[in-house]
């Protein structure tokens, strides 16, 4: 039973990992991707539409990357090149994303008589590895998006701390002027990482629709983009921290689902479990000290004046 709970926790962690790692990379350049909730939602929608129309989850996920990137691109243009406020712009985009996918869901499918369904991604057992007791069923009996994230975690760490691109990314968030003086286009760097956040956030969103539930509703993200955003803060702007933070959240969410499924509602109200991840965020935001905040987080870069 514990094994199935942990396996569940890992599964619920997957989209948060995509989201929070994308957020870590972006914020290291000084860009808070506050449109993350909208990117998740657009990814969920794009993934659903792609899968439903073609029958291929692979194309669905590509579509999710496209819709996520499109959303991120609008955010990037307004915040980076037009130098508008990141929080304000992000919030506006999140509202627009909600309106957009509800409306286009209707444009594409009208008012269906029964809820539209797709087949969620299936769990794939990795030969040999999945046979290892305890660890096997937890780590090696997951869907393909979870397996992909296994590679993304070390890759993101390597990118940030071992490569020249990583050095540029980290320098951009600390002192964009130094990057500019070194002859690197600061706003270009920022735009690229925001687009990357769009790709990864889109996949994260698709995890909910294509990877797990097999359907789409407008409220299916329900603040999980924000939780990925929070994890980035709580994980001290480091992929390692993001992994730890995500596991904690994924676990909370798995417990909530589990408690509901076994009728824990007779002892505690279900709403308590639903609220748990959000309460946890508040508590951790308060407890977490010694932040390693990128010095220029949230500040647009312009060199003249």
């Amino acid at each position: 039973m514990i094994v199935s709970l942990l396996s569940r926790a890992l599964m619920m962690s997957t989209p948060l990992l995509y989201g929070s790692i994308a957020e870590v990379i972006a914020e290291r350049t000084g860009m808070m991707v506050t449109a993350i909730e909208g990117i998740f939602l657009m990814g969920a929608w794009g993934g659903f539409v792609g899968t439903y129309l073609t029958g291929s989850a692979f194309i669905g996920i590509l579509m999710a990357m496209a819709t996520g990137t499109m959303t991120a691109a609008i955010y990037g243009i307004v915040c980076i090149f037009l130098k508008q406020h990141q929080v304000v712009t992000g919030t506006a985009i999140n509202i627009l994303a909600a309106g957009f996918c509800t409306y286009f869901q209707r444009v594409l499918f009208g008012i269906p008589t029964s809820p539209l369904k797709i087949d969620p991604l299936s769990q794939i057992a990795i030969p040999v590895l999945s046979k290892i007791p305890v660890i096997g069923p937890i780590f090696f009996y997951q869907n393909s998006l979870t397996y992909l994230v296994y590679f993304i975690i070390p890759l993101s760490y390597f990118l940030l701390f071992r490569t020249s691109i990583g050095l540029i990314i980290r320098s951009t968030g600390e002192n964009p002027e130094a990057v500019d003086v070194a002859g690197i286009n600061v706003n270009g760097v920022r735009f690229v990482v925001v687009l990357l956040a769009g790709v990864m956030g889109g996949v994260a969103g698709a995890f909910y629709s294509v990877g797990y539930l097999g359907m789409f509703t407008t409220n299916m993200i329900g603040g999980r983009g924000w939780i990925a955003f929070a994890i980035c803060f709580l994980g001290n702007w480091n992929p390692k921290g993001a992994v730890i933070g995500t596991v904690v959240f994924g676990f909370t969410e798995a417990i909530a689902i589990y408690m509901q499924s076994i009728g824990g509602g007779s002892y505690f109200p279900n709403e308590l479990f639903i609220a748990l991840p959000y309460i946890l965020t508040i508590v951790l935001t308060v407890c977490r000290k010694n932040f390693n905040v990128p010095a220029k987080l949230g500040v647009a870069y312009s060199k003249e004046n």
Partner: peptide, 22 residues
């Protein structure tokens, strides 16, 4: 006309207002 047109209108207006600041 679906009700979600309201959200869409509001979202578009907001984005354009932000751009107009620029």
């Amino acid at each position: 006309v679906p009700a979600s047109i309201v959200d869409l209108m509001q979202g578009f207006v907001m984005i354009f207002v932000i751009v107009s600041y620029f």
